[in-house]
């Protein structure tokens, strides 16, 4: 069984400050994390591998050379990695990414399961998994809190309103995993060193593919366009609530209710 896990990176929010008054974004420390959902998805894949054996391949890509994401994936226990790069990769949106990944699956000669994070940490977009499922014509399970393979089918726990239900579907399938679902394991020390040094067969485990070989240039044109940033208004001084204790409590309860409804 071959499991493909998509690893994307995200700027660590601890290193940035969105200044409301100056309406500017300050990047104090440019450090990247693996998207929590993708990280969790990799853990799900590795647990399937631990239980029943599987070939776990991570797919990642950046416009500029940066192997850190795939290295971390390999160090956690992935068997191989595909690193996409090349001109036209910059500005790729989820529509382009879905086409690219479809081409990756084709070139690999198929896969049984694709695991990807449900939502991105920064933009909160949850379209890559479903779009890829649509492109491949595979069934999808969105928001799987646990993933297992039972009798050649994929079985997952998914939220349904306030409850959690077990769902299953045929392979091949695309499953998206929320960031909190599974705690990613810590990489094995020796493996980590080998990965970063390219020793112990780890150098050969990474396949480097140029996006130009996978897609026509028009396939790389993104659908979405970024048109700038906006900042929330500056925080103002609060309002003082006055009155009897009951009145105050009523006002606070009212405000809380309004906020929680909106959230």
């Amino acid at each position: 069984m071959r499991i493909l896990v998509i690893l994307r990176r995200v700027l660590d929010p601890a290193g940035i400050v969105a200044h409301r008054r100056l309406r500017r974004l300050f990047i104090n420390r440019e450090e990247y994390l693996i998207q929590p959902g993708d990280h969790s998805a990799l853990e799900a894949a590795l647990r399937i591998k631990d239980l029943g054996g599987a070939e776990v391949v991570v797919v990642s890509g950046q416009p500029e050379p940066d192997d850190d994401t795939v290295c971390r994936g390999l160090a956690m226990g992935a068997d191989g990695a595909i690193y996409l790069s090349g001109e036209g990769f910059a500005g790729a949106d989820d529509g382009v990414a879905a086409r690219l990944l479809q081409a990756v699956v084709d070139r690999l000669g198929g896969a049984d399961l694709v695991l990807v994070g449900m939502t991105t940490l920064d933009t909160a977009q949850a379209q890559l998994g479903p779009r890829l499922a649509g492109a491949l014509g595979w069934p999808q399970i969105v928001g799987a809190w646990s993933v297992e393979i039972v009798d050649g089918r994929v079985r997952a726990v998914r939220r349904d309103g306030d409850d959690y239900v077990v769902v299953e579907t045929d392979l091949p399938a695309v499953v998206t995993v929320p960031g909190r679902a599974l705690e990613p394991r810590y990489p094995d020390g020796a493996r980590l060193v080998n990965v970063y040094r390219g020793e112990g067969g780890m150098g050969e485990a990474v396949l480097r593919w140029d996006v130009a070989d996978l897609l026509h240039p028009e396939g790389l044109v993104p659908l979405l366009e970024n048109r700038g940033r906006d900042f929330p208004p500056e925080r103002e001084l609060g309002v003082r609530v006055e009155g009897t204790t009951e009145e105050v409590a009523q006002a606070v309860a009212e405000a809380l209710r309004a906020r929680l409804r909106g959230a």
Binding site: P13, I16, A18, L25, L121, D122, T123, A124, Q125, L223, L224, E225, N226, R227, G228, R229, D230, F231, P232
Partner: peptide, 17 residues
């Protein structure tokens, strides 16, 4: 506009074509 990092700031996005 879509909220980034849960509303720290917003990106304005469009689908022109």
């Amino acid at each position: 506009a879509i909220p980034i990092y849960g509303g720290e700031y917003f990106e304005v996005v469009a689908c022109p074509e």
